[in-house]
């Protein structure tokens, strides 16, 4: 029978991952310490269910030392009291944060959303490195961000990295198997790509379409198949849940 533990008896002392700059901000699996037994730890994999933890491996400080040394875990500077329905996440500055599940997910999605128009703007200016970094942060925050994948694919194509763009299409197919991703990439390249070279009038652009919703409108009027974003996002949320 799987052992369970009360969250009220636990505090967070680390997380079971070692993150790079390309992987933050991100929700991470916590490593708990028993408040009444300072040497005793509870290490993933486990399930967080309401006010308790189900499963996990009991260990001690030496285990955590070794996990850190073996690049399996990271300590956090100060212990955090465990709470029901909360997520531990690591922000863009590698600072641990802890908050209610819904708010954390909302916050991370907001980070992802904020980066997208900036990334398109960078692409328009042919600053592909910045665009790719902004998109990567968006994916770290919300791996269901189709817009971020589109940014990556467009940047790859414009840089002549068609092979990498094909990988992005493969990644998109994991979450959005029914989306005509290549068609979206072509359309995004047209809408957000660098300004056309002279002799056309300098600085003229047919309007930034900074969100996927705008693009969907473009598609409906241009005869492209329209992708139902809300349906796809619902599918994504089910996976998150």
């Amino acid at each position: 029978m799987t052992k369970t533990y009360n969250l009220a008896d636990l505090e967070i002392v680390g997380y079971s991952d070692v993150l790079t700059v390309d992987l933050v901000p991100r929700i991470v699996p916590p490593i708990f310490r028993f408040r009444a037994e300072a040497e005793k730890l509870l290490i993933p994999p486990f399930r967080l269910i309401d006010d308790h933890v189900e499963g996990g491996i009991e260990g001690d400080e030496s285990d955590l030392d070794r996990f850190v040394g073996n690049e399996q875990a990271t300590r956090i500077p100060q212990p955090i009291q465990a709470r029901p329905k909360h997520h531990l996440w690591i922000d863009e500055h590698f600072k641990p944060q802890y908050g209610p599940e819904g708010k954390v997910v909302e916050r991370l999605r907001a980070v992802a959303k904020k980066n997208i128009p900036l990334a398109w703007e960078a692409i328009h200016k042919e600053d592909f490195d910045t665009a790719l970094q902004l998109a990567q942060t968006a994916i770290a925050a919300d791996e269901f961000s189709l817009d971020a994948l589109l940014v990556k694919a467009v940047a790859d194509k414009l840089r002549g990295h068609d092979d990498r763009a094909a990988v992005v299409a493969k990644i998109a197919a994991v979450t959005y198997p029914d989306v005509s991703f290549d068609a979206l990439v072509d359309e995004c390249s047209r809408v957000h790509g660098p300004a056309p070279a002279p002799p056309g009038p300098v600085g003229v652009h047919d309007g930034f379409s900074n969100s996927f919703d705008d693009l969907a409108d473009d598609f409906s009027s241009s005869g492209y198949p329209v992708f139902d974003l809300s349906e796809a996002l619902t599918a994504g949320e089910q996976v998150i849940a």
Partner: peptide, 20 residues
């Protein structure tokens, strides 16, 4: 590998060569 890792620049190049 998970989506976030696969999407990294170095990983996309690597995945492309692995697939090939």
């Amino acid at each position: 590998l998970p989506v976030a890792v696969a999407a990294e620049d170095w990983a996309r190049a690597k995945i492309s060569s692995w697939t090939a």
